[in-house]
Nucleic acid binder design. Structure first.
Lengths: 262, 262
DNA sequence: CGGGCAATTGAAATACATCAAGGCGTGTGG
DNA sequence: CCACACGCCTTGATGTATTTCAATTGCCCG
């Protein structure tokens, strides 16, 4: 039935065997990044080449890392001197209760800063986990902090990233506290579609969709069973179609209504 | 039955008639603030007196405002060049849906920055409303920003405030998505008690409690009716006692268990 | 080929919402 | 000062969204 290309699985799986591969910064890596012109990297790059900063033609003091699907990228109490930015792949950031209940706070796509908390302290308090194979770039926090003080453009960019993350979390609280299951699920789909579109990662109305229903459940505060039922309804109503590991939005207008969008 | 002093009502109500009273900064106002040594104000004060900054013996470029109970302090789309900090009283910050459903994101107590978003942009996106009569102090954002660049102590303080707010919002999402009604309500009570204690605003195990059940409902994503039922159970089980406008924690250990604390 | 995770589906349980009525306290206007 | 309205809280009855439990299937991976 899965007649749609599963491009996120097309990455050579063999390379996944070697965990946490590290390579020095190379410009070619950024070509992979779907969100080059959106991300923090762009502006950092500009600073690097125009200023007195180290490497020209490369991002300042950063390294690229690779993590295979399903593996943890950061533990909630892990200290890090680095600010990680996703280059490719999908991952998920969440917090959990001792008894295993967990809440996904955001899905991370290429160009996203893993957690803006890392910009200001070594601790994010969030668990970050790869969904697909993921590559990310690590900037040293002290470097960023220095840049932030000298360069108002960097300051603004970082402020904006921070504010965006806050708006997202506020909306999440509103969704979880005050919206129905169908609304929450429909909004997650639309939200992802919008973000992927910005990154040129939509093929028309269809997107790669590597998420398990458990991910959606944990993001919406629901049960996997219930997610299955709602998604079933959405498909029977011809709002969306899910097959293989991709999702296409068939009736965007109706889906927006279901989501109570804007 | 209300045999406990209702100190938050003790404030002269006559003064409430005149809305949004403005007065120039005066040190005496800070004596009212229950959280002087916790708040941003302290460190700003220090900067002002040691540096080349304007007024000595007063906070830099700030004004004090007063708002009567139940009135809006900020509209969600209101632009402001100022960063407000609560001096006295309780208020609430929330976001709402067009149809009226709303989610309270935090209860603001003396010493709290109304929204850290104001530190970096003119827009908070949140609705802020006084519960009791409230006084707050407004700092000019550009002043704070300047201070932030020159003074690493200010930078750290502001980072910390920001990170704290983020942790709170993350926890809120976890609570709303993954906790039961009783857990959420019990945690709100314990959380408030803890914050009030830090400010020296607890009288033993009892606190002023100006919140309506609707506030608790909107903070926990529940219905006022259901809040009433749960609070009723808590009282029948002798976990807490609510009378007049004050709340006392009778069995903290059990309440913590109900809250699934830590 | 077997084992395990993922998804689907139905039946039963339950947590919470909605509806509705009554009481209580508080401010208000006659 | 009383009558009254109104907001707030309580309580019970009923409704419903979502969970839990359980059985079945398909699928990927070893």
């Amino acid at each position: 039935m899965a007649n749609v290309a599963q491009s996120h699985l097309a990455v050579d799986q063999a390379s996944a065997r070697k965990a946490d591969v590290e390579s020095t910064c190379s410009e070619t890596n950024c070509a992979v990044c779907a969100a080059w012109n959106l991300s923090l990297c762009t502006i950092l790059k500009n600073c690097a080449s125009e200023g007195d900063r180290a490497v020209v033609g490369a991002l300042p003091m950063s390294t690229v890392h690779m993590v295979p699907a399903r593996r943890t990228i950061f533990h909630p109490k892990e200290w890090s001197e680095f600010v990680p930015v996703i280059c490719s792949g999908w991952s998920v950031s969440s917090i959990a209760l001792p008894d295993g209940r967990r809440q996904i706070l955001s899905f991370l796509l290429p160009g996203d800063v893993v957690s803006t908390a890392f910009l200001f302290g070594p601790l994010s308090g969030r668990h970050v986990e790869a969904v697909t194979e993921v590559t990310y770039r690590k900037f040293k926090r002290s470097d960023l902090r220095a840049l932030l003080f000298e360069n108002p453009e960097v300051f603004d960019r970082i402020s904006k990233t921070w504010l965006d993350e806050r708006v997202q979390t506020d909306q999440l609280a509103l969704d979880l506290g005050r919206r129905t299951a169908s609304e929450r699920i429909a909004r997650q789909i639309l939200n992802l579609a919008e973000r992927l579109a910005k990154r040129g990662m939509m093929r028309g109305q269809t997107m790669d969709f590597p998420l398990r229903q458990r991910h959606i459940a944990d993001a919406t505060g629901l049960t996997p069973v219930h997610v299955s039922k709602v998604l079933g309804e959405f498909q029977r109503a011809r709002l969306v179609e899910i097959s293989g590991r991709s999702l296409t939005i068939i009736n965007e207008a109706e889906l927006r209504i279901a989501a109570d969008w804007r």
